[in-house]
Design a protein around this nucleic acid. Structure first.
Length: 490
RNA sequence: GGCCCUAUGGUCAAGAGGUUAAGACGCUGCCCUCUCAAGGCGGAGACAGGGGUUCAAUUCCCCUUAGGGCUACCA
């Protein structure tokens, strides 16, 4: 009924990075909106740069983000295999067909020889272009030389003159002059197809209808169009989505901090927040909506509304979105996301995670809307799980240095000790009463107490903290602080 | 170097031949307040430059500039 089929085709040379994730996401939105299929294909034809584990990492990141694929690794499908390394025969066959038809030819030029002419062309200000040296070698001669052990690549015969028009759903028509193009290599000397060739053959073989990919491929597109023509295939629809750049407008790389989805996860960002952020990087529904679910995006997504402009990723905004999710998600979900971080930081053990679930839950509930990431959240809960052994330095100067402090803390401590029912109402009432009795400002008592109880100058509401710590720990920490002040600050 | 793409505040981003040029993040002032967040109310901040076309251009065209991409036996 409809023939929309799109694909995401990462090459397994590393982790899934934000740009790739966004491209995958846009493909996925497009397919889901139009009721088409989303195919995942692994482009593992670069034997040099291949990285072990990369495929499983990429798949894991995609799953984590919630991007599922209809065909591809793990799920299979009618157009498999979905690894290019397992489709070599098909490329070989098509390459030979092109050679037979005279549309491609064997080339014996050595790489360093080519580099020399390229250098010459650079100096004379011409386009870097293969000089056509092997164009005239007959097929029989070429085959003989190959049999004799000579290494050869296969090149596509590209016309010297003419134009190629690329139609792009985002950019409109883009024209390229053929005299700028090379006789491109379609099969490398090791028999493995080059990117442009494998890509075209697979997109055709897999019945892909729309190729949605990063803009870096726009300049490759005329080459692929040439290939479509030579192979006699119908041309797909292209859509080139803008790149994602680092804050300094350069290409994203490790030196810019986190670039892979995995790193963002480790830094405490939530999958739905990342998806939300990426959705609005290069696309907008035209409203002022800032928070959106994938389901809503699927409903509203339009490829023609994708921006033409490269976007710079801004972790501040990501953090804000993440904070929004942290406070609006169900508490149980937040806990589920946080526990691994607590475990990793050694604040709790697996056993405690089960046994003390309720108290962990209450702790997370009071801190979750004051932080932006799970890492911050974890950090903010530290004093609930560990004893306070040091006090914020600035805080000491501010709240522990006055002569009357120990006395105040002692009175506070004693009033807490009196409380039978140690809940927020009673602790607060006790403190308010004491404050009134002493005719002091509430901060005069509350601030030193906070420092005593948490070691910090900021925390959730003091009485909530007290209750979560429990009476015994509160009293112990007050005593410890009083001692500390007497010993160190006097 | 050649070719291609792109150009609205610091960032994301709406917009349209005539608008006081949205909104969000960030920054910032005030309010609230036990701190920190959150929240509420304000503020600063943009159509890269130059030529056209037009009664009128930020919007359409050209050039310049800037950024990005391709120019690999990488993808």
């Amino acid at each position: 009924m409809n023939h929309v089929r799109v694909r995401f085709a990462p090459s397994p040379t590393g982790y899934l990075h934000v740009g790739g994730a966004r491209t995958a996401l846009f493909n996925w939105f497009f397919a889901r909106k139009l009721g088409g299929q989303f195919v995942l294909r692994i482009e593992d034809t670069d034997t040099q740069r291949l990285k072990e584990d990369s495929v499983s990492q990429i798949l894991a990141s995609m799953k984590w983000l919630g991007i599922d694929w209809d065909e591809g690794p793990e799920v299979g499908g009618p157009c498999g295999p979905y690894y290019q390394s397992q489709r070599l025969e098909m490329y070989q066959k098509e390459a030979q067909r092109l050679v037979k038809e005279g549309k491609a030819y064997y080339c014996f030029c050595a790489p360093d020889e080519l580099a020399q002419t390229r250098e010459l062309q650079r100096q004379t200000g011409q386009a870097f272009r293969y000089n056509g040296k092997c164009r005239g070698i007959s097929q029989t001669d070429a085959l003989k030389r190959i049999e004799a052990g000579e290494e050869a690549v296969v090149r596509l015969r590209v016309p010297d003159r003419g134009q190629i028009k690329v139609t792009d759903l985002i950019h409109g028509n883009v024209n390229f002059e053929l005299d700028q193009l090379d006789d491109l290599i379609i099969v490398k000397s090791n028999g493995i197809p080059a990117y442009n060739f494998a890509c075209v053959i697979d997109d055709h073989a897999m019945n892909i209808s729309h190729v949605i990919r990063a803009e870096e491929h726009l300049s490759n597109t005329p080459k692929q169009v040439l290939l479509y023509q030579a192979l006699g295939y119908n041309i797909v629809q292209f859509a080139h989505v803008p790149m994602i750049l680092a804050p300094d407008r350069s290409k994203l790389s490790k030196r810019h901090g986190a670039t892979s989805i995995e790193e963002f996860r480790d830094q405490g960002f939530l999958a739905p927040a990342i998806v939300n952020y990426l959705t609005f990087l290069g696309w907008s529904p035209g409203t002022d909506q800032e928070l959106i679910t994938p389901a809503e995006t699927v409903e509203q997504f339009e490829i023609s509304k994708v921006s033409k402009k490269a976007a710079i990723y801004d972790t501040k905004k990501l953090a804000w979105i993440n904070g929004q999710y942290l406070s609006s998600m169900s508490l149980n979900d937040v806990i589920g996301e946080t526990i691994p971080f607590l475990l990793r930081k050694g604040l709790i053990t697996e056993m405690q995670a089960g046994e003390q679930y309720n108290s962990i839950k209450n702790i997370i509930d009071v801190v979750r809307n004051r932080v932006k990431t799970l890492v911050e959240l974890t950090e903010a809960t530290e004093y609930f799980f560990k004893d306070v052994t040091e006090y914020d330095e600035k805080g000491q100067r501010k709240y522990f240095s006055k002569p009357e402090t120990t006395d105040l803390l002692r009175q506070g401590r004693d009033s807490l000790e009196q409380i039978e029912c140690f809940d927020v109402q009673h602790t607060e009432a006790a403190y308010r009463q004491l404050i009134e009795d002493l005719s002091i400002k509430s901060g005069d008592l509350i601030h030193p107490t906070r420092l005593a109880l948490t070691g910090r100058m900021e925390s959730p509401g003091l009485f909530e903290v007290m209750v979560l710590l429990g009476k015994d720990r509160c009293l112990a920490r007050m005593d410890r602080a009083i001692n500390f002040i007497c010993k160190t600050l006097r």
